[in-house]
Every structure is written in C-alpha cells, then in structure tokens.
C-alpha cells in the first residue's frame, strides 16, 4: 500500500529558528546567511497558526492528458519547538477510502510516519527515509509534501527578480539528508512582500532539472496566514503532472495531540 501525506507546500522553508537570526546591518551578510535569514523570516510569518483543516483534490495527469483524481482531507497541528503533526485521510478512490497517513515531522532527526489500513484495522509504521518515493502515484515525493522545517535544508541567496509581476527572492536550498533525498538542490521563488512561495525547481541527483512546482491563488486567513488554492507540479523528464486544489480551509478548529495518535487513527472515518 502506498502512503500519502499532504502538507501544503508553502510551508517549505518555514520553521522557527530565531537563534540563527543575524543582525544584518552590522556586517556584510554572506549569501548563505541571507538565504537562511529569508527562510527564517518566512517561517516566522506563519508562526502561531495553531491548527487548521482543509480538503484537497489531487489530479494526476499523464503525458497524453489522461486524468485520475483522489480526494483527501488534511488536518495539521502546530507543535511548539518542533515540526508539525499532520493527518491525511483518503475519501477516494473508493478502494482506498478510510486509509489514513499520520506524520510527525521533526526539526532534527527522522520524521515519524504511520499508515492506517482500514480493511485490516492495522497501523503500520513507515520508514520516513524513503522520502524520494512517489506520494500516491503523484509527481509529489514524500519530501515535497512533508512539513519542511528550516533545519532540513541549507540555503544560498541568489538574486532578486520579477516573477509574475511580483518582486521575488530567488534562492537555492540543499537537503541536509543528502543520502536519502532525491534532489541535489531546489531553486525557490519567494515573493518579497509576503514571503510566499511562488515557484520551486527541483534538480535530481544528476543535477538535471526534474520538476517545477507553481503555486497560485494565495488567500489570507485569520488576518495573518497565507494559504494557496492551487499547486501544480510538472515533471519535465516524463511529461506527467499533478495538481492539488485546496478548499475549505478552517483555522484554529480546536485540534489537540489527541487527534494525532494511534487511538484516534483507528477511529478515522
């Protein structure tokens, strides 16, 4: 059985990491320091959201335009001082209805992941180091959809440029877990006004451009937190693509740790 965790991609680069904040006015900032500072600022701007739920439709498309859809409900809990907890529940296709994926991400060390298989009433642990594997047959790998803490990458600021009418920071990031990541680097476009991810290019281990992610339709929630309606991942090497369309975002719904344990996993509907 394949497993799946959907974590909105805009959280790439987001995490709390105040210790590394550099008083930039006082010395010449290196490109690495600037890249990190941008990642930390983006993370800080999403701090304090508490929890949220959302619905998602994933559409897989092959190079001939044939489509296949999956619908997923997602619940996310912010954890102070560590990575988020996420629960994703599949509603369709109907043969996997009720299958659920639970993930605890950590700033340092391996994430913890479990899969609940409703037909067998069984909770299986998943090895989170299989991060380069495809998520549910989609063009998103596990490492693309997992909650991405600042500490999981190192950074380098490249330049500022206009992208789709917005002035953006363009920077490279490199996975800390080089052994298991499917990428040698990513290039990210982050708008300077609100620190939201607009575009990501993924380069495979042979340094060839593998995929491009485009994020659009950002909306403002609870006057503070930006969430995107649409994410499109195109694989340049196979011609296949996957789009994620998000709806029904709800913030501060009262989720607690009790909604993210093995007991609650078994009573998922």
């Amino acid at each position: 059985m394949i497993s799946f965790s959907i974590h909105p991609i805009y959280q790439i680069l987001l995490s709390t990491c105040l210790l590394f904040m550099v008083p930039s006015a006082l010395h010449a900032e290196t490109v690495e320091e600037k890249g990190l500072a941008i990642a930390v600022e983006a993370d800080n701007r999403d701090d304090g959201y508490g929890d949220y739920t959302a619905d998602m439709t994933m559409t897989l498309r092959n190079r001939h335009g044939k489509e296949s859809k999956r619908s997923i409900r997602s619940k996310t809990l912010e954890v102070n001082g560590d990575g988020d907890k996420n629960l994703s529940i599949f509603d369709t296709p109907r043969d996997v209805k009720g299958t659920a994926f639970l993930s605890f991400s950590h700033k340092v060390g391996d994430d913890e992941q479990w899969l609940y298989l409703p037909a067998l009433k069984r909770v299986k642990r998943i090895n989170s180091r299989n991060k380069s594997g495809s998520f549910m047959g989609s063009e998103f790998a596990y490492e693309d959809i997992a909650s991405q803490e600042v500490e999981k990458y190192t950074y380098k600021h490249l330049r500022e440029e206009d992208y789709n009418g917005q002035l953006c920071f363009v920077g490279e990031s490199y996975p800390v877990d080089k052994k298991n990541s499917g990428y040698i680097k990513r290039i990210t476009w982050l708008d300077k006004a609100e620190y939201r991810i607009q575009r990501v290019e993924y380069y495979d281990r042979k340094a060839s451009l593998l995929k491009t992610l485009t994020i659009s339709g950002y909306q403002h929630y609870v006057d503070k937190y930006w969430r995107a309606d649409s994410m499109e991942m195109v694989n340049h090497q196979t011609g296949k693509s996957t789009s994620l369309v998000w709806s029904n975002y709800a913030f501060q719904t009262g989720l607690t740790d009790n909604d993210f344990n093995s007991t609650s996993l078994k009573r998922i509907r």
């Binding site: 394949i2 092959n62 296709p93 495809s134 549910m136 047959g137």
Partner: peptide, 9 residues
Amino acid sequence: AVNDMADST
C-alpha cells in the same frame, strides 16, 4: 509499487 494511476502492485 508501480505508483501509476491504477495504483498497481
């Protein structure tokens, strides 16, 4: 796990 649209295994 083929990871195709049909979730072939």
